[in-house]
């Protein structure tokens, strides 16, 4: 499917989705409430068939926290980027997609570990790299660690 028909199809599923500018991939900003529903349809619709989630990244945009999903279809060879954002920095919350793409389980744990973004219905949401008693979420821009981080 080419980008235009993909755009149309996604806007059909989620009318509130916003197209973001990106040279490489078709990027959509999706409301957090629609994420799981959209993901399910992306995976299960035969003409979309986004079966390969190759990257889940948390991003701290300063005011907002975001999760970026890079999707790929092994059948149709098309790619798509889905982004969700939240303003709630104290208790950021998204639905998990690890029931749809199993690889998300580890990637979401990593995002939780580094950004403190919680994923609802995640089966085993624990810190993955840092210790359980680590304070704070290191990849957030407002993270302060006077011991380990040397400011130039």
């Amino acid at each position: 499917m080419d980008n235009d028909s993909l755009t149309a199809r996604i806007l059909e599923i989620v009318p509130d989705a916003q197209l973001e500018e990106n040279k490489q991939f078709l990027t959509f900003l999706v409301p957090a409430a629609n994420l799981h529903d959209l993901a399910l349809k992306l995976k299960s619709s035969p003409e979309l068939a986004f079966d390969f989630l190759f990257c889940v990244s948390g991003v701290d945009y300063g005011k907002q926290l975001a999760v970026v999903y890079h999707l790929n279809s092994t059948q149709h060879k098309h790619a798509l980027v889905i982004k969700v954002k939240t303003d709630d920095r104290a208790n950021p919350n998204f639905d998990t997609v690890c029931d749809i793409w199993r690889t998300a389980e580890f990637h979401e744990r990593e995002t939780y570990d580094m950004f403190g973004i919680r994923f609802n219905n995640h089966p085993d949401l624990r810190r993955i790299f840092l210790e359980e008693d680590w304070k704070g979420y290191p990849l957030r821009k407002d993270y302060v660690d006077e011991v380990n981080i040397v400011e130039f």
């Binding site: 990257c55 990244s57 948390g58 991003v59 199993r102 690889t103 580890f106 990637h107 990593e110």
Partner: peptide, 18 residues
Amino acid sequence: YRMKFRTPSFSNLSVLDH
């Protein structure tokens, strides 16, 4: 501003349990 590495071993490890 943000750099994320999607490393192959990380995903490959997740399947080990399965």
